[in-house]
Design a protein around this nucleic acid. Structure first.
Length: 256
DNA sequence: CTAGGGTTAG
């Protein structure tokens, strides 16, 4: 095309840039991206989404933020996919605050319909930095905006509650999920098992696994590993305490 | 319906 002096239209450019990004040839992609303007074509939202996704995938988050600001600065309105590229990319490395700060206006603007993906990425990001308040607020917001929480939304929150040993909350959420017509999957159950094991109830975890999960065909290596590890820990703890009891009972600790 | 993407566990 260059030889023939044709200037590719924006569609051709985007397909080409996407290919370069997929091949991780980011520097070349950026170079050609900048030449778009020189050749008289204006990058559009798709171009920016491709580039933002591409730079995030190679860990260049500052470039992603720069591209985003450039896009907004040009008066382009980011759509669902552009937002996803930035949010998913930034949340993956724990920069959820920055991601939220950048897209919050777009989300609250109400002009764009968002997929659950973007909400889930934000909820997961906030859970990871223990901002459950923020995560819950986003869950409420998505429902209000006509985007129902899905299996992943629930699993992300279950993961949080189980990690924080808030089992009653986890239980409540689990039931709520079932009431909403969402069938828990292996992830959901494995989170519950983890919660039970970490609150010293490996027997309950075992029963859940054998009775409920096996029956539904929802059991995998993670389930068994979690329960086995908990049982092992219990046995070790039991023996350790009995050793210590004898040790103290004989007054041996006073010799230290 | 000419292009861009995928979030959660041991």
């Amino acid at each position: 095309m260059d030889k023939l002096n044709y200037v590719p239209d924006i569609w051709a450019f985007n397909i080409y840039l996407n290919l370069l990004c997929r091949e991780k040839m980011i520097d070349l992609a950026l170079e050609d991206f900048h030449s778009i303007v020189k050749k008289g074509r204006d990058p559009d939202v798709v171009t920016y989404a491709i580039m933002i996704d591409g730079v995030c995938k190679v860990g260049r988050f500052n470039s992603a933020v720069g591209l985003w600001k450039e896009m907004v600065g040009k008066g382009l309105s980011p759509d669902n996919k552009a937002c996803c590229a930035l949010v998913v990319g930034l949340c993956e490395v724990g920069k959820v605050d920055l991601a939220y700060e950048l897209v919050v206006e777009v989300i609250k603007g109400g002009n764009v319909e968002f997929s659950t993906l973007i909400y889930n990425a934000l909820i997961s990001g906030f859970c990871r930095i223990s901002r459950i308040d923020k995560a819950q607020a986003i869950k409420l917001f998505m429902t209000k905006n006509g985007c129902e929480p899905d299996l992943v939304t629930y699993n992300v929150l279950l993961n949080y509650f189980c990690n924080e040993l808030m089992l009653q909350e986890a239980d409540k959420l689990f039931k709520k999920m079932e009431r909403s017509g969402i069938r828990p999957d292996v992830y959901s159950y494995n989170q519950m098992i983890k919660g039970l094991c970490n609150t010293n109830k490996p027997d309950k975890a075992y029963l859940l696994m054998v009775n409920k999960m096996e029956a539904d065909g929802l059991v995998d290596a993670v389930s068994y590993n979690t329960v086995i590890k908990a049982f092992c820990k219990d046995v070790i703890l039991e023996r350790l305490t009995s050793c210590l009891r004898i040790w103290v009972g004989r007054g041996l600790h006073q010799m230290w």
